[in-house]
Design a protein around this nucleic acid. Structure first.
Lengths: 190, 190
DNA sequence: CTGTCCATGTAAGGCGTTACATGATTGT
DNA sequence: ACAATCATGTAACGCCTTACATGGACAG
């Protein structure tokens, strides 16, 4: 279960509340793993039961209690174990390809509309990733340069997003082109 | 809900039983949308209630009844409507990237092991897609060439699989290379 | 005085997986 | 004799989403 391990990952750096974790997800891994708030709270409760994390209740007069979660030794070894074990292959689920697969019943115009729509959002995503990459790698003044190696791995996940969007765009363009000239014959493969 | 619409897609060609549908999924769309048997039966029951499909019970002496599902007019218009409506953007979920993101705590060796593992399966997938492509596009004797345009769309879904695997491989190779030479600096983007 | 941020959760429902159950027919 | 194929489903559980509920602090 990946969410659990992502949470352990964040807590291995620093103890956090559920709320902090939500922010951490949104800020850093949302582009390949989003988590919603209620799911985080539920999972934390579960992880507490399993002894992977410990909770410390911070009472604040007049305000809601805050619960700070810390990783336990069990949690740490579980994390390390998960991080170093190759995952089973996962099945892709691309609803968009279902539309394409059954595209035979649609007109060229209808299909091109779909493809262009997809292309637009792929381009936007690519640009967004690019911008984040530029922004985060820009040399900053007065900021403690966190461990360069750790930073490198977070950049790698961004590069993945760019690379896969580029591939998507390439595929979309090739499809659009062929539909436009009504060439429905297979591609010659090398 | 994509499963529902994929089922409608298959039924728009031909009336089928739940069992037939399972085979249809496994044979043609499994590489981007897998469905398991119990899910298909449950969804068919639901779709019958919604009036998207109709069931005809075929009694066979000595054997289990067979239920053949046909698409209704409501089903057809629902399908067409879904096929022509761009889907909301979906969030990627790549557990593998969680491992990379928190890779800072792992050794280079541990990380390379993960990356090579992923690379191996990407290569295998690519080869498999290639082989299917070759096999299905090879000129055959005495086979009714189904509609070339419809066939083209099914090929497109395969091409997508190849393109995205190529991108994955490219990314993996770049990551592996940089880790091997211990160059953890950001890439210069164009 | 309205909205956003901080901070916690519960409830309900959808989608998907795994395991279980049944039983005849056909192929090796 | 045994396995695979044909053909149907139920039960239970896990993960994720959406909506709901609460309430103080602080900024515009």
């Amino acid at each position: 279960m990946s969410l659990k391990h992502a949470i352990l990952g964040f807590l291995s750096y620093k103890s956090l509340s559920g709320y902090d974790l939500k922010k951490a997800f949104d800020k850093s891994v949302r582009h390949f793993w989003s988590a919603n708030q209620s799911q985080i709270y539920r999972t934390l409760a579960q992880m507490t039961d399993e002894g992977l994390v410990e909770r410390e209740v911070v009472e604040r007069e007049e305000r809601l209690d805050m619960k700070i979660y810390s990783i336990t030794n069990t949690g740490r070894s579980e994390l390390h174990n998960w991080l170093t074990t190759p995952l089973p292959e996962r099945e892709t689920r691309e609803p968009f390809l279902i539309q394409i697969f059954f595209g035979g019943t649609l007109s060229d115009e209808e299909l091109l509309k779909l493809l262009h729509h997809e292309s637009k959002s792929a381009k936007e995503n690519l640009l967004a990733y690019h911008a984040i990459y530029q922004a985060t790698t820009a040399p900053r003044v007065g900021e403690s340069s966190t461990d360069a190696r750790s930073f490198f791995f977070s950049l790698l996940t961004l590069e993945y997003g760019m690379e896969s969007n580029r591939a998507l765009l390439k595929w979309l363009n090739s499809a659009i082109e062929r539909i436009e000239v009504k060439n429905y014959s297979p591609k010659a493969l090398k």
